[in-house]
Design a protein around this nucleic acid. Sequence first.
DNA 1: CGAATAGTTCATTTTTTCTTGAACTAAATG
DNA 2: CATTTAGTTCAAGAAAAAATGAACTATTCG
Lengths: 166, 166
Amino acid sequence: MVMATSAQPLTEVEIELVDLCVRIAQFLGLPKSLGEIYGAVFIASKPISMEEIIERHGISKGSASQGLRALRTIGAVRTQYVPNDRRDHYVAETGLGQLVAGIMRNRYEPGIEDFGVRVQSLQYLQGKVGKDEQHLLQRIQKLNHWQEQAQQIVPTLRQVLQGEGP
Amino acid sequence: MVMATSAQPLTEVEIELVDLCVRIAQFLGLPKSLGEIYGAVFIASKPISMEEIIERHGISKGSASQGLRALRTIGAVRTQYVPNDRRDHYVAETGLGQLVAGIMRNRYEPGIEDFGVRVQSLQYLQGKVGKDEQHLLQRIQKLNHWQEQAQQIVPTLRQVLQGEGP
DNA sequence: CGAATAGTTCATTTTTTCTTGAACTAAATG
DNA sequence: CATTTAGTTCAAGAAAAAATGAACTATTCG
């Protein structure tokens, strides 16, 4: 690992803010590097390039490239045009609703859908329940009920997080 | 790895139900083995012992012991007395509200609290924000706002999941 | 008691996930 | 159009997380 060459070291406050971003990422089950990269963009006073992120935060080129793509995909950062500079520059989206929506969409909803499909097809399997395993029918019902409740959660979350602030 | 010695193999339906439990566990960021073990208890027609779980599902003793403890801690299973049997026997809790509450309490709420503490202490750091980093004050505000919203989520979830069914 | 059984612990191994960096493509620059 | 620069890809390495099983403790049974 090579140290940053010439970038300003992070100030105490910056380190703390990036650290908080890292912890949020980990909390959400995302890799630490995504938190770092988001943090880098989050604390920047103006649109920041990948190179600056790499140098100032000591992240590898590969991680930075992949991480920025992931963050774009979930809508946590977006690119912004900067005149006279060939490089892409990034700014952070900071609406919690938007952030969580993006994470849900990419990381959680596919799982919820799969679950729904699997539970649906359980109905078919009911025929294959043997006489000696009638108690499983109840369990299948239970899973159905779970699935119904799970589907309510996403819209509810959306509502809680709609209220954006300053 | 040693195969189960003499237990009934799982039926097609049982395999599917356990598999669903495994996927739910993974979705929630819990290790696969917790899903398997919960699944084993979930599909059992009567209180099941650790030994039966180990034999029928091919889980190691260590995993089974630790996994059952974890499941007890989050309130996903509980022990039930069985006459004339020295071993502990387990039954599954199947209320989604209870399950999610347990998982939240153990896996997520500590993180939310830590985050709250850290954000609190940011207020103190505001003094250390240099003249050249005034833009960070906004970011600190943003984190505050996130924290307030995050605190609303737990009670809201609780409410959605209260409605228990059959 | 002493043997047998139930259950726990934890160092080691296995598996999975994340990160790196060198080789590559693509695009701009002079 | 050759060179520099920006950005991507992916195989290999590093790190983290999970699973195993042998050694242990605790309990019950005869």
